[in-house]
Design a protein around this nucleic acid. Structure first.
Length: 573
RNA sequence: UGGGGCGUAGUCAAGCGGUAAGACACAGGAUUUUGGUUCCUGCAUUCGGAGGUUCGAAUCCUCCCGCCCCAGCCA
């Protein structure tokens, strides 16, 4: 539909009647004012010192999404200014994760380290203009001189070295003539500033360590505040988006670009993502891996991109989630249920339905002929007719879910019980006639009868049953390992707890090795996703599946109103 | 006790002086060969609090309260 007047809306890129989040509003205002000549250039600037998590996904979707919406571009820039912590392995994993999420930076792959020469020139200019000096105070002294939040700092005795001396010292720093910590380059701003960031911040420090990209060329490396604004400037970024904790740094971002008279992008801060029942701080994530609470960075319980991928989440569901959570400036905690809703929504439409019994209970259908097998037609996806049908074998002995039978069923339990009739999906009505136990008294088998007239699942006499069960023919079943994942933490906000490790969910993983699946699943290719009817969505693990022997990860359960009723009944009792 | 931010439902989040969108969650109901899906219905007389301006305030002003960030040679 065409816009009639431009006065109320936010421009051609935002739906009628909507203004979009505050960053879109800023961009649209800039566009309308002709700022940046109508360009929109954003960037995603990870430090290659760890794996990306769902919080980074928010930033990736925001930056790449904005570039797409306004026909601009988004750069992938590695903020690799600290050789002590960064390495190539991380840059590769980050690239793989961004690609998997569905974004393409085309030729715009950059590294702050590519700019080290230009950054050095900029530093020289600052020194020449009297805006930076080499300080020979020790790290401890610098801290003492900085003052506190409520008291101003003091000037370093080295603050008024001559330009010539500063130039000479800085050059020597670059040549490796000093030890780490012996001196730093500082901006000469204001030791009494109420913004602590502005109390002569460090611009360069000495690191006698090879860098993963520049080798041993440098002995000095720029700090974030110096490298970041200038990298943005060099790349012609228009809107430099970052999280709220960098708000105090914006004054320095602006100061550096102003003093250097450089092209000046604008920094805009937004709130980072917090997700319930997990942690997203790098430190805590590392702890989970190192302490062995999980099996690596891509453990399906990890909130990392690689973890969600391994769990079976789709890129589209994560993108959709990032669109729905919004972009604002207030701290918030998004309910994990929203993410789960997003995968279910995607998979409900797209995943093939299949039958698999996780906890098998043997059922013998006494009036069904021995040694007979018949093929029954099952629908692959009721949400998408084009996905067609398949044939599944039925025979005298089948497995049903143990939880679908109760000897003494409570109210509202509609499934199988002694004497009760239910439907086997796509097959027949069966009635339970007997319960077989072992010596220990445990139920090991059910005896049932079937009604041949109900083939396919309908009774010609119009008789109704209250439940439909999934099942697998015992003789044809493929035995498989399935892992059931649950929330990693029992607390809503584990990061807030004094000891977050104490609220790790001891039941976050259950491995079942004797699941019985319908025969077609033997050929499930790695990375395939299915809905196991009545149970949930499952993913053929790309690491542990072998040809003919898939291993499944439960992505998420189906919504389960029966479980809710049970919970409510327990609560009452 | 310095400075910078932020407070709208259980959780996110629109709202930009004209009388509280939407989503998730939750609770009912209908349909259903998945206790799934889908579809209806309900869910803020009030926007952290108190004053003020105005015919009219979540939106403007004042004061108060609460939460987050900053004292790395990390990013």
């Amino acid at each position: 539909m065409e816009r009639e007047h431009g006065e109320k809306g936010a421009g051609a890129n935002t739906p009628e009647g909507e203004r979009g989040h505050f960053i879109k509003q800023i961009i649209e205002a800039d566009l309308a004012a002709g700022k940046y000549d109508g360009r929109v250039v954003t960037r995603f600037p990870p430090e290659p010192n760890g794996y990306l998590h769902i919080g980074h996904a928010k930033s990736i979707c925001l930056n790449f999404g904005l570039a797409r919406q306004y026909q601009g571009r988004c750069h992938l820039r590695f903020d690799d200014t600290n050789p002590m912590k960064e390495n190539r392995e991380y840059v590769e994993s980050i690239k793989a994760d961004v690609r998997w999420l569905g974004f393409d930076w085309e030729e715009h792959e950059y590294f702050a380290s590519d700019y080290f020469d230009r950054l050095y020139e900029y530093a020289l200019k600052l020194i020449k203009d009297g805006n930076a000096y080499v300080d020979s105070l020790s790290p401890e002294q610098i801290r003492e001189y900085r003052g506190t939040l409520s008291e101003p700092g003091r000037q370093s005795p080295y603050r008024n070295r001559s330009v010539g001396e500063n130039l000479e010292l800085f050059e020597k720093m670059g040549q490796g003539e000093f030890a780490e910590g012996q001196c730093v380059l500082r901006a000469k701003i204001d030791m009494a500033s109420s913004n602590v960031v502005m109390r002569d911040p460090t611009l360069y420090r000495i690191r006698n360590k090879a860098h993963h990209r520049t080798g041993d060329k440098w002995h000095i490396y720029p700090m974030y505040d110096f490298a970041h604004c200038l990298s943005d400037s060099i790349e012609g970024i228009t809107h430099s988006l970052c999280t709220l904790e960098f708000e105090n740094n914006r004054e320095l971002y602006d100061w550096i670009l102003d003093k250097l008279d450089a092209y000046h992008p604008q920094q805009i801060e937004f709130a980072r993502l917090n997700l319930s029942r997990t942690v997203l701080s790098k430190r805590k994530l590392i702890r989970l891996v190192d302490a062995g609470y999980v099996d690596g960075w891509d453990d399906p319980r990890m909130p990392t991109i690689s973890g969600f991928r391994r769990r079976g989440y789709t890129p589209a569901s994560i993108r959709n989630f990032c669109d729905r959570i919004g972009v604002a400036r207030r701290d918030s905690m998004v309910d994990l249920a929203l993410l789960e809703h997003c995968v279910r929504e995607d998979l409900n439409k797209n995943a093939m339905r299949v039958m698999g019994v996780l906890r098998p209970l043997r059922v013998v259908i006494e009036n069904y002929p021995e040694n007979e097998t018949e093929m029954l037609t099952a629908i692959n996806n009721p949400e998408d007719e084009s996905m067609g049908t398949r044939e599944v074998p039925f025979s005298r002995v089948i497995y049903v879910e143990r939880g679908d039978f109760m000897e003494d069923p409570p109210k509202k339990f509609f499934r199988l019980a002694p004497g009760r009739e239910v439907r086997l999906r796509y097959a027949y009505f069966i009635r339970c006639t007997d319960v077989i136990r072992n010596e220990a008294g445990q139920i090991v088998e059910l005896r049932c009868t079937y009604d041949p007239a109900t083939r396919g699942g309908n009774a010609p006499d119009g008789r109704k049953v209250k439940a439909t069960l999934h099942w697998v023919s015992a003789a044809h079943a493929v035995q498989s390992t399935v892992r059931l994942y649950d929330h990693l933490f029992t607390e809503e906000n584990p990061a807030e707890k004094e000891d977050f490790e104490a609220c790790i969910n001891p039941e976050s993983l259950e491995v079942i090795s004797d699941c019985m699946l319908e025969p077609g699943l033997a050929d499930a290719p790695a990375e395939a996703r299915y809905q196991f009817e009545r149970l949930g969505y499952f993913y053929a693990d790309h690491k542990d599946s072998a040809p003919g022997r898939p291993v499944f990860n439960r992505i998420v359960t189906l919504r389960d109103t029966w479980a809710k009723i049970q919970k409510a009944q327990k609560g009452k009792a």
